[in-house]
Design a protein around this nucleic acid. Structure first.
Lengths: 354, 354
DNA sequence: TTGAAAGCGCTAACAG
DNA sequence: CTGTTAGCGCTTTCAA
């Protein structure tokens, strides 16, 4: 009989945090039915009229499902972990936003952790993410040799890599088309008439560092330019300071370039510091091209010519890929290369010397 | 009798995801006892030797407590919501890191949402955070008139405001000492000999905009300078474009300043654009001071003199304050003003014209 | 000091 | 189509 239920329904008009049972009682049905009605996936299992009543009851009570209870039952947290080196690097915020723009509408949230490039910290943070039951990981800290990634992969943790890749682990990646980007930079400089072009490469422990350096060498060949090994110097980190050190080293070695392809924008900024130190005029004495097109580069002196990376799109693709992985986790790892574009500003010009 | 338990213990050596019961069985105790032993808070309720056995069992099984189950039981999610306008604004990443540096060690995680300055979006995002059972909110999007904040406060949602304040709601805030910062900027310019100093204020809908503008007027008085109302123009947004528009307006109005105190660094960058447009040489013809000291300002042409805000510290204080609020939610709202410092670079100099 | 029992809010068989 | 039942993994009375 439904009398007692009815009675309760009228008494409980405004519960502080209405539960599914409150809704069910208000609608005069069982909690299970209310659950079915409320979930779009299972709504068709219930009489349309009943469903309507449940929806209305939920609405009027201001019912909000408790995702924690749902998670406990379904063993799905609707949460993913995002592992980045450092959020204050302007590279990452647009990627994060791209990820969240896809995840949010799909009902997922991201937990962000910063590793500060410390493998031990990374391991601890990943462990904490996993203990929080994240369903998958998006990782922006990949090194070529990265035991943690191999281990996670073996344990079947769904993940996708962004920006950088790793070796020996078959994991889907979303990266900029680094080789094409470097080729554009070299073509631009060669077109201006530069013949001694140097490369301040990123760290050789990262795929981005290695891929860009290799692409640089290939591009030189294609343009029939000097492939002097002394024109390539690897930076220890992706930072201004490391870029400055590398350029000083390059200049002191007497390699004498007229143009530089920097591994990324920060390394290019390090070049600016050295230009100031040594009274080198850019672009008159030396041209430089960055990589990434981080914000405010147009405000520099001179404005930096660079390769624009669609960071937001990188995030979007990565998040989509992870969601797809959840759908059919057996799918083979597929990777995506995103197209880049050259942004010509004031840091590149024809060489003034011979 | 413990025989069956023992037996099971030896059989189950490596459960994939060991649960509390697995640990309990392995240690030959009840799940409740294992729970008490594992939780430092309740460990003293259990025999030291038993506790040791439980800890060892947990260790050897690689037990990780399931925070979702715990949350369901305790109605605490160990999660907080962080509401910011836009993560790609370089102001916010250091604040986020400060927050996470405090939250992480305390066992909390942050869910970040970006409102893009859209009140409707903000409302929806806050609702989604609340449905995810966040225990509290850190809000960086406060406007002076902000009905949502008043409503949340009435509902007793623990929250703290960062960067900006709101009116008529008694909520704890962590903000830079805007008035002191503006006073430093004006003092610096006055000391250089400027007498016609303009202010490109932030939006009047935000406390930061209003407080800085008022402080500007006060500082002018203190230095006995022109308080010409036409020297103060409010920008519509905290952006380069709005800053540029405001400066054009100021210049066109004939106010004729020799120096500008910009509401923030982005507004100052907008000034740089106008300087280029109108062939105004900075700092020869016009000095400008920014506010915030966002990254890479030293690389601009000229390097921007600005007021440095300890953003990381802002995040740290805000997170601490929220955690304190959880401890004793009846405590009266307390607010913190963080000290700033002037960073003199190349965008300020003595006035060249008389 | 420990165990038994209950239940957080929800979903998923299963039965009717 | 709907109700019953059980249980996700944990904490917390209450008894013993």
């Amino acid at each position: 009989m439904s009398r007692p239920i009815r009675k309760r329904r009228t008494i409980i008009t405004a519960v502080p945090n209405p539960t599914l049972r409150d809704v069910a009682e208000a609608a005069g049905v069982h909690a299970a039915t209310a659950s079915r009605a409320l979930n779009p996936e299972t709504r068709r299992l219930v009489n349309a009229e009943t469903a309507r009543r449940v929806l209305k009851a939920a609405e009027s009570l201001g019912y909000q499902p408790n995702p924690i209870a749902r998670s406990l039952k379904t063993a799905k947290s609707r949460t993913i972990g995002l592992v980045i080196p450092d959020l204050t690097n302007p590279l990452f915020p647009p990627i994060v936003r791209g990820i969240e723009d896809v995840l949010g509408p799909a009902g997922y949230s991201a937990l962000i952790v910063n590793t500060d490039h410390d493998p031990a910290r990374e391991e601890a943070l990943v462990a904490s993410l996993r203990s929080r039951q994240v369903e998958g990981l998006i990782i922006a800290t990949a090194r070529l040799d990265h035991p943690l990634l191999r281990e996670l992969h073996q344990q079947g943790v769904p993940m996708v890599l962004v920006n950088r890749r790793t070796e020996n682990v078959d994991v889907p990646c979303v990266t900029p088309d680094d080789a094409a980007g470097v080729a554009m930079a070299v073509k631009h400089l060669a077109g201006l008439g530069h013949t001694r072009i140097a490369h301040l490469a990123g760290p050789t422990s990262t795929s981005t560092g290695v891929v860009r350096a290799n692409a640089f060498r290939t591009a030189l060949h294609e343009h029939g330019l000097d492939d002097d090994p002394s024109l390539i110097v690897a930076c220890e980190y992706w930072t201004e300071e490391a870029g400055a050190r590398a350029l000083r080293h390059l200049l002191d070695s007497g390699a004498d370039p007229s143009a530089i392809v920097a591994g990324n924008d920060l390394i290019a900024l390090g070049c600016y510091d050295v230009f100031a130190e040594r009274r080198i005029s850019c672009p008159r004495d030396m041209s430089v091209v960055g990589f990434n097109d981080m914000p405010f580069l147009d405000k520099l002196r001179p404005p930096l010519t660079t390769i624009a990376v669609p960071h937001h799109q990188v995030g979007v693709e990565a998040a989509r890929m992870l969601l797809e992985l959840f759908e059919e986790s057996a799918r083979p790892a597929r990777s995506v290369l995103l197209p880049l574009s050259l942004v010509v500003r004031g840091s590149t010009a024809r060489p003034s010397r011979r």
